[in-house]
Computed example of a mutant assay.
Amino acid sequence: MIFDRAAKRRQRDRAAQDVSLSRQTDYLRDEVAARVVDRLLDIKRRFPVLVDLGAGAGHMVKHLESDLTSKVIQLEYSRGLGERDVGEEREVEVERVVADEEALPFEPNSLDAVISSMSLHWINDLPGTLSQVRHALKPDGVFLGAMLGGDTLYEARVALQLAETERLGGISPRVSPMTNVSDMGQLLSRAGLTLTTVDVDEVVVRYPSLFELMTDLHDMGESNSIINRRPYLSRDVMMAASSIYQEMYGSEDGTIPATFQILYLIGWKPDPSQPKPLARGSAKASLKETL
């Protein structure tokens, strides 16, 4: 176990309490959700029902139209966050389900498509969740997701480690461990999904200082939830980290960049209708002769 799931739920519940403040920090989730939907549109298929894992307040459904789907089942671990925008008008029907992404409540072979944005990086048993997704999908059903990658907030990680080493003589995990591209390709295949693809993108957000970045992460419900995390970060260390951050990465206008690495994942449940590679030795032309 790496993450304290109960703490993560409390963080997300707390993030939803002040609705106006919570919506001010939707910018990152809304942007990534829009990019996921763009990739879903590339499939050129209509999905009667979509399941959105870790839906948050419903960032994905903001970008979905009736020509793509009729209904979205939003599964969210935090009831407060999942119900934050109840009453908001959407073009498609919305059903809200409170459940843990590590224990999916869906019947085998029942779903056309499962999508997820900005949630999977907090899952302890990611292979288990992906395997459950495969079981729930119908044959030739698709999983499409986006999650934070290992280079996310590398600037903050460096600044905090240097500051803690200087002031405390050691470091503690302040930024959650995240997976990388090669690992995700293997995890998708290990879960039994086929025709898998993983690609990488970056979203860079500029902040006045490290303090504003940390405040926004808190208000998003994206604070650290590692089980062995140090519960308190002293102002002395924060001031040192902010200075280091500014010195190493700051721009001429005084702002600092925060890099969010996004891994986009796609995999299909196996089906006989899917294209398959030709048998070895079946080629009718020589590549050497062609070249």
Rank of each mutant, 00 (worst) to 15 (best):
residue 228 N to Q: 06
residue 203 V to P: 04
residue 88 E to I: 05
residue 30 D to F: 14
residue 231 P to F: 04
residue 139 P to T: 06
residue 193 L to G: 10
residue 184 M to F: 13
residue 160 L to M: 10
residue 178 M to C: 01
residue 87 G to S: 14
residue 124 N to M: 13
residue 4 D to Y: 09
residue 143 F to T: 05
residue 129 T to P: 05
residue 228 N to P: 00
residue 17 Q to Y: 14
residue 222 E to S: 11
residue 190 R to G: 11
residue 271 D to Q: 05
residue 117 S to G: 12
residue 149 G to C: 14
residue 173 P to C: 00
residue 103 A to L: 11
residue 235 R to Q: 13
residue 238 M to T: 08
residue 260 F to K: 05
residue 79 R to T: 01
residue 76 E to C: 10
residue 190 R to K: 13
residue 229 R to I: 11
residue 37 V to K: 07
residue 81 L to I: 11
residue 145 G to R: 02
residue 159 A to W: 08
residue 100 D to L: 07
residue 57 A to V: 00
residue 10 R to N: 15
residue 215 T to I: 02
residue 78 S to R: 05
residue 80 G to L: 10
residue 12 R to M: 13
residue 84 R to V: 13
residue 204 V to D: 02
residue 275 P to I: 06
residue 233 L to M: 14
residue 55 A to Q: 11
residue 104 L to W: 01
residue 53 L to W: 02
residue 38 D to P: 09
residue 285 A to H: 00
residue 133 V to R: 00
residue 207 Y to R: 04
residue 256 I to R: 03
residue 189 S to P: 00
residue 280 R to Q: 11
residue 190 R to M: 05
residue 167 R to I: 11
residue 216 D to G: 14
residue 108 P to Y: 05
residue 105 P to T: 03
residue 124 N to I: 08
residue 231 P to C: 04
residue 210 L to Y: 01
residue 50 L to F: 01
residue 246 Q to V: 04
residue 28 L to V: 14
residue 103 A to D: 14
residue 7 A to T: 00
residue 288 K to M: 11
residue 28 L to G: 08
residue 110 S to R: 07
residue 46 R to V: 07
residue 185 G to A: 04
residue 221 G to P: 10
residue 287 L to K: 08
residue 78 S to T: 02
residue 259 T to W: 13
residue 41 L to T: 00
residue 277 P to K: 04
residue 152 T to C: 03
residue 65 E to M: 01
residue 287 L to W: 10
residue 105 P to Q: 04
residue 136 A to V: 03
residue 38 D to W: 12
residue 51 V to S: 14
residue 73 I to T: 12
residue 34 A to N: 06
residue 120 L to Y: 12
residue 112 D to R: 02
residue 97 V to D: 06
residue 284 K to F: 04
residue 168 L to H: 12
residue 279 A to V: 08
residue 131 S to R: 13
residue 270 P to T: 09
residue 13 D to K: 09
residue 138 K to T: 01
residue 48 P to F: 00
residue 152 T to V: 02
residue 253 D to F: 07
residue 114 V to C: 06
residue 76 E to S: 03
residue 148 L to S: 07
residue 83 E to M: 07
residue 36 V to P: 15
residue 98 V to N: 11
residue 187 L to S: 03
residue 182 S to V: 09
residue 224 N to S: 02
residue 258 A to P: 01
residue 3 F to C: 02
residue 13 D to Y: 10
residue 7 A to W: 05
residue 232 Y to M: 11
residue 111 L to E: 02
residue 149 G to N: 06
residue 132 Q to M: 12
residue 133 V to F: 00
residue 173 P to F: 00
residue 33 A to L: 07
residue 103 A to K: 15
residue 54 G to H: 11
residue 257 P to Q: 03
residue 23 R to T: 10
residue 159 A to S: 15
residue 238 M to L: 15
residue 17 Q to S: 14
residue 69 T to E: 03
residue 232 Y to H: 15
residue 261 Q to W: 09
residue 167 R to C: 08
residue 16 A to Q: 11
residue 142 V to Q: 04
residue 136 A to I: 05
residue 6 A to T: 07
residue 29 R to N: 15
residue 191 A to Y: 03
residue 134 R to D: 09
residue 232 Y to C: 09
residue 10 R to E: 15
